[in-house]
């Protein structure tokens, strides 16, 4: 029984890991990384480490996904509909030319 649950979770985690590297959309890759974190946190529960599982679910799957998604938004690679994003502030400036001069 325990083996079956572990096998299903390991297959889920590894396929989500492959998706992280293969998905074209970077937002999809971030969500796949979050799925990896959640699967690993359930595996921690099976390994009798409930405190680590709590931390992994809250910090690894929650906070890290928020950080990565906000980073994507700041890079202009992820856009909500009707949202201009913050990428317009990020166009490469003429700083290098000023430094050269």
């Amino acid at each position: 029984m325990l083996e079956t649950v572990a096998l299903i979770l390991v297959i889920l985690v590894l396929s989500a890991g492959v998706l992280v590297l293969c998905l074209q959309s970077l937002m999809g890759a971030v969500v796949a990384a979050s799925v990896v974190s959640l699967g690993v946190s359930v595996l921690f529960v099976l390994l009798r480490a409930p405190d680590v599982a709590l931390t992994e679910a809250a910090v690894g799957a929650g906070l890290s996904t928020v950080v990565l998604a906000l980073g994507l938004r700041k890079l202009g690679l992820w856009r909500i509909e009707g949202d201009r994003g913050e990428a317009h502030a990020l166009v490469p400036t003429d700083r290098r030319e000023r430094e050269d001069a």
Partner: peptide, 18 residues
């Protein structure tokens, strides 16, 4: 891609923790 590098780092990190 630099961003996917960060994601791959997170992936390896989850494996090491496990």
């Amino acid at each position: 891609h630099l961003f996917r590098l960060i994601l791959a780092l997170a992936l390896a990190e989850a494996g090491v923790n496990l």
